[in-house]
Computed example of a mutant assay.
Amino acid sequence: MTISEVSEKFDIPQDTLRYYERIGLIPHVNRNKNGIRNYTEEDCSWVGFIKCMRGAGLPIEVLIEYVGLFQQGDATIEARKEILIEQRKRLIAKMEDMKKTLERLDYKIKVYEQVVVKKERELKRSEI
């Protein structure tokens, strides 16, 4: 796949894909004889993984560490697992914070809805 196809498939700007490649998040992407990037299914798997992890809030630095460990082979499985466990804990905490924020927003919306209903009732009474 070309960079434009990968960009469209994953809804990631081409510049971001180039950046990910430059900093080592996407292991070396082969190029054709004209120098155009030729993404393999494995490359696309990395792109999908990175997009998912970034969406979950993982910092670039953590992803760089993870990819570096992956490239070192099976001897780093435990270290990679620990990174994912730590990031999972952080994501759960973030989700709990977001849940509290959502509950507060729901409360405020409910209060405003009650105010609107009260105002409408008062307006109807004044019309009588």
Rank of each mutant, 00 (worst) to 15 (best):
L123A: 14
R90N: 15
R104H: 14
D106A: 06
G48V: 02
I36P: 06
L25D: 02
Q14I: 14
E42A: 15
K119Q: 12
R104D: 12
I128H: 08
I64A: 03
K99C: 03
I92T: 08
G55V: 03
F49S: 02
R22I: 05
T16E: 01
A75R: 14
G68M: 06
R80S: 01
E21T: 10
Q14P: 07
P27T: 08
R37M: 09
I23V: 12
S4G: 06
R18F: 01
V47P: 00
L123S: 07
H28C: 10
R125P: 00
F49M: 09
I128L: 13
R88G: 00
E127H: 10
K99N: 08
E122N: 11
G35A: 04
I23K: 07
D43F: 04
K89H: 10
E122A: 09
D74W: 03
R37K: 15
P27V: 07
C52A: 06
R80C: 05
R54V: 00
K119E: 12
R121F: 05
Y107G: 00
M1F: 07
Q72I: 07
R90K: 15
Q14Y: 07
K9V: 03
L105G: 01
F49E: 04
R18V: 04
I64H: 01
D97Y: 05
E21R: 07
G24K: 11
K110D: 09
I36A: 08
I85A: 04
N34Y: 14
Q87F: 01
E127R: 15
L123R: 14
R31S: 08
N30I: 11
V117W: 07
I12P: 02
H28M: 11
F70L: 11
R90W: 03
M53R: 04
L69M: 14
F70G: 12
I85S: 07
T16F: 01
G68Q: 13
V111R: 09
R90Q: 15
D97K: 08
M1N: 04
E42L: 14
